[in-house]
């Protein structure tokens, strides 16, 4: 096995272009998914490139009304950084534990592409763009076009997630709810993110997303658009109808953590509670 620790992004991109590697950032997903008997090496089916310490991927900057987060920024670094969007902070706060957050990267949470990844509902509704780089080119993809199923991504084998771009916007309400098996250090049974901008009692912006209730995070921009322009009161009067419409897109499954009835009911309850809070 050629497990390598490149020193620069350039070197990484060259290696990625030449060989068939798996990128390993914090390893908080990969090291577990491939774990083996103690004191033996994790059983990876590909050679590994360790990118956690690449200096070029550790930054957070604000430029052109857009926040740029380097992909190997750890969750703990983001949690305490003043530029991190408040909604993302809300999500990170209840992700894993301090020890995991010190290793877990934002790029890894995207790269793992789990429907229960807690940063994802937030990134979806903040309209995050993922910047992907290879030796040949840099391209940008909205996050929902990058993640297409559990663990499935439209990313080529010579590419790396370089950064996450988040356009700055103003909201009057933000909400992140995580429903896990316990208060801390739990994988989500359901997660919910919501943002809204209300001006003169009128909905000017409204975005919601749900995690762990489908193969990918569920967000429906059409349904969101339908409520734009409504007054808050109208929205509350028609709440049942809105809930039903969103409900049609929430098709969770049973697994060891919960069941579909619960997931669906609670997802709708969370949406309802968000709308009623506006």
């Amino acid at each position: 096995m050629k497990n390598l620790t490149p020193k620069t992004l350039k070197e990484t991109l060259i290696l990625l272009n030449e060989g068939d590697y798996k990128i390993l950032a914090g390893g908080t997903d990969l090291m577990i998914q491939n774990r083996a008997w103690s004191n033996t090496l994790p059983k990876f089916n590909k050679d590994i490139l360790l990118v956690f310490n690449l200096p070029e991927l550790k930054y957070i900057t604000l430029e052109d009304d857009c926040l740029h987060i380097g992909s190997t920024m750890t969750l703990e670094e983001l949690l305490y950084h003043k530029l991190t969007p408040k909604l993302l902070v809300e999500a990170i706060k209840i992700m894993a534990s301090p020890a995991i957050r010190n290793m877990a990267t934002l790029g890894g949470n995207i790269g793992n592409a789990s429907p229960a990844g807690d940063s994802l509902p937030v990134l979806y509704i903040l309209n995050a763009i993922v910047v992907i780089e290879s030796i040949e080119r840099t391209r940008e993809l909205p996050i929902e076009d990058l993640i297409i199923g559990p663990g499935k991504k439209t990313i080529q084998k010579n590419e790396i997630i370089k950064e996450i771009k988040i356009p700055m916007s103003n909201f009057t309400s933000i909400r992140f709810d995580k429903v896990g098996g316990r208060k801390a250090d739990a994988i989500s049974k359901i997660s919910f993110a919501g943002v809204a901008k209300v001006k003169n009692n009128t909905i000017q912006d409204f975005r919601v997303s749900f995690g762990a209730v489908g193969p990918t995070v569920v967000r429906n921009k059409e349904l969101e658009a339908n409520v734009i322009g409504l007054t808050v009161d109208d929205m509350k009067v028609n709440i049942q109808e809105i809930l039903n419409e969103f409900g049609n897109f929430i098709r969770p499954i049973d697994d060891q953590r919960s069941n579909k009835e619960y997931r669906k009911t609670v997802a709708i309850n969370l949406l309802k509670s968000f709308i009623l809070s506006l």
Binding site: L24, F52, N102
Partner: peptide
């Protein structure tokens, strides 16, 4: 546990806690 969940394997890297059962050696250079 070997799965990052229990914290029994915790050590400090640069004064911060990590669970050593899931830290790849290469990252501690």
């Amino acid at each position: 546990c070997g799965e990052g969940e229990c914290g029994a394997c915790a050590v400090l890297i640069n004064d911060q806690i990590v669970n050593s059962c899931i830290v790849p050696l290469g990252t501690v250079e």
